[in-house]
Each structure stands twice: as C-alpha cells, then as structure tokens.
C-alpha cells in the first residue's frame, strides 16, 4: 500500500490533485482512495488531502496515515503546519518553495536528515496556467521522485482526466507538469 498526504490551503486544488492522481492510477488496474479533511472549509484555510494506492481493494477507512510521501503545495505550510506528523523513516517530502533545499533545511530544522525535494510549483503554475494552482505541477514532481509512471504516459492520462477543460488550459497544465518534473531537486 502506497500512502500520500497533501498539505494545502482550501482552493489550491489538493482535493482535485488527489482525485486526479487517483483517476490516473486507477487506469493502471490499481485500487485507489482519495479523501480530504475539510476542517473549517473556508478558502485559504490549511487542509490535508490523502491518497492510498494498492493492488487489492482498499478496505481501510481510517483517516490516520503514516505517509510514504508528503506533498506540500503551499510554501508557508512548511512552517505553520505539522508536515512531519506520523512520518516514517522512509517518508519522502516534496515541498513547494522558491527557496533552495539548503535554505529550507536551515529555516525548518525538523526536515533535517529527511529525504526532502523542492520545486517551485507556485511560480510554475503562475508561468504556465496563469494562476497560483500548484496541484498539477506537484503531480509532475511526484511522478519524477516516485518513478510511478513514465512522464509521457502520465501526461496522456492526465489529458484524459482534464478532458472537459478548454484545450488551452489542458496544454498549460501539461507544460506545468513537465516543468515540475524537470525542475524538482
């Protein structure tokens, strides 16, 4: 079982990202689960979303999770949310930030000694989609770090998930995924 926790603000697309990922993964014959804690459900409020992926039907409905991946799509949450909660020794962190990895580790010492990757999903989404919606670029970064899929396979599958959107938006999302895939480090 692969488990992923997203840290986001309501409105940044973590739920859509988690569901989009689940959609793509389900096409490979895997069983998936995507859910979220909505909290106060106000735009801008800190929230978490979750993915489970397994070869068997997923029966576990507990919200508690020891994640394999933690995806932080709002830069400030690295400092204000408990992003290392219930971590394992092997938990990998992918963090949206304009800072370098060294700068992040200096500013947030709890991440020292952990497997941390950084990517500026905010800037990428602003450059490509024109809005600060960092969810799709984060998926690109996750695909790179996890090696879950070939990037071209993933992009094609995401095109299918986004098929109801205008072509211009789909193209911008594809660009965002590719840039994050290439830029995460």
């Amino acid at each position: 079982m692969l488990e992923i926790r997203w840290h986001s603000r309501a409105g940044q697309g973590a739920v859509t990202g988690a569901k989009g990922l689940a959609d793509v993964v389900s096409k490979t014959g895997k069983e998936v689960q995507a859910f979220a804690f909505y909290g106060s459900a106000k735009r801008g409020a800190a929230m978490t979303a979750y993915n489970r992926v397994d070869d068997k039907p997923i029966l576990n409905h507990e919200k508690f999770m020891r994640p394999d991946y933690v995806l932080v799509i709002d830069p400030a949450l690295t400092f204000t949310a408990d992003i290392t909660a219930n971590e394992k020794e092997t938990t990998k962190y992918i963090i949206t930030t304009h800072l370098s990895k060294d700068e992040i580790l200096q500013l947030q010492p709890t991440l020292q000694g952990k497997e941390v990757y950084v990517v500026d999903c905010m800037q990428i989404s602003l450059d490509t989609i024109g809005k600060a919606i960092p969810n799709t670029p984060m998926l690109g970064a996750l695909i790179k770090i996890s090696g879950m899929f070939e990037i071209e396979y993933f992009k094609n599958a995401m095109k299918h998930v986004l098929k109801k959107l205008p072509q211009k938006i789909i193209d911008a999302n594809m660009l965002a995924i590719e840039r994050a895939y290439n830029e995460v480090k």
Binding site: Q33, A34, I58
Partner: peptide, 12 residues
Amino acid sequence: QDGFISSHTAQN
C-alpha cells in the same frame, strides 16, 4: 452511506 468517509472519498 457514511458522511465524508464514503460520500467524499473517491474510490474505484
């Protein structure tokens, strides 16, 4: 169905 645990949880 259970609120959120089923209603807002996407599965196959």
